[in-house]
Design a protein around this nucleic acid. Sequence first.
DNA 1: TGTAATCCTTCCCATCATGGGAGGGTCAAG
DNA 2: CTTGACCCTCCCATGATGGGAAGGATTACA
Lengths: 144, 144
Amino acid sequence: MNIGQASAASGVSAKMIRYYESIALLPAAGRRDSGYRDYGTEDVHRLSFVRRARDLGFSIPQIRSLLALWTDTDRSNDDVRAIAREHLAEMEDQARKLQEMITILTALVGSCEKGRRSACPIIEELGDHKPAPVARARATRRAA
Amino acid sequence: MNIGQASAASGVSAKMIRYYESIALLPAAGRRDSGYRDYGTEDVHRLSFVRRARDLGFSIPQIRSLLALWTDTDRSNDDVRAIAREHLAEMEDQARKLQEMITILTALVGSCEKGRRSACPIIEELGDHKPAPVARARATRRAA
DNA sequence: TGTAATCCTTCCCATCATGGGAGGGTCAAG
DNA sequence: CTTGACCCTCCCATGATGGGAAGGATTACA
């Protein structure tokens, strides 16, 4: 089938299919005499695999590993689990950071007085801190 | 002070300071005769503001709004709260999605048999689904 | 069969925030 | 005055994705 059909069948855009091929995430597709790429059910299978892995947030390098394990019939489940767990750890870390930011911002929003144009910690907090001890000596400036 | 000192004082890299200037997130810095950019404490203040906002995950457009509100003495706290809440909603949405993926992946890892090279749902799941109802009719292919 | 519509190809450009580096000018300390 | 650190402007790269142009292939329909 054509790249467009493979795209529809797998849910991966034609652009991305070509891109994945270009970075060797996927094997170069066969070509017809016309130069058109030609895909079979096996290819669609692989494409779907990639799409689902991306949906789960796996990075391209991780998907590369997963694909190798998938293709390799001698793969060990442990290897697969290891990659998945690695990704899981990353995601959990990301979730922790995100939650932290949510907590801070929620507190800021909560303590920013409604209506009145006065002390809003969102603004104060952002502006008033001096994060790094400045090493400024000669402020020989003429324009501000 | 020089861009390097402003960078050290604010925690924003010199590269980023120039970039922020180029996209007009920051006003163009004054120049000395040499062509060097020149910064004062006010500028460092603004830079720190930007950095902290970035640390909290605000996007550049959002920071642009916050900066305008910060600069504008007639700003209403409500405006600031609105932007913060908008960002908060985005972050919460992101956290939800992330948590969902974590749940799925955790389940998959849990049910992938240890050691034995057999049915590992991480692999099976990824490979066996047909996500999009294929619309292939005329598969006039010659090569598979 | 002719023609138009659709599809495919490659190549270039853009995104967003950030960094790296080259080539060349400036400044401060020795 | 030399030297090393700093700054300047450009250009390139990232990662994953999309847009679009120019041109060839295929298909659909009259």
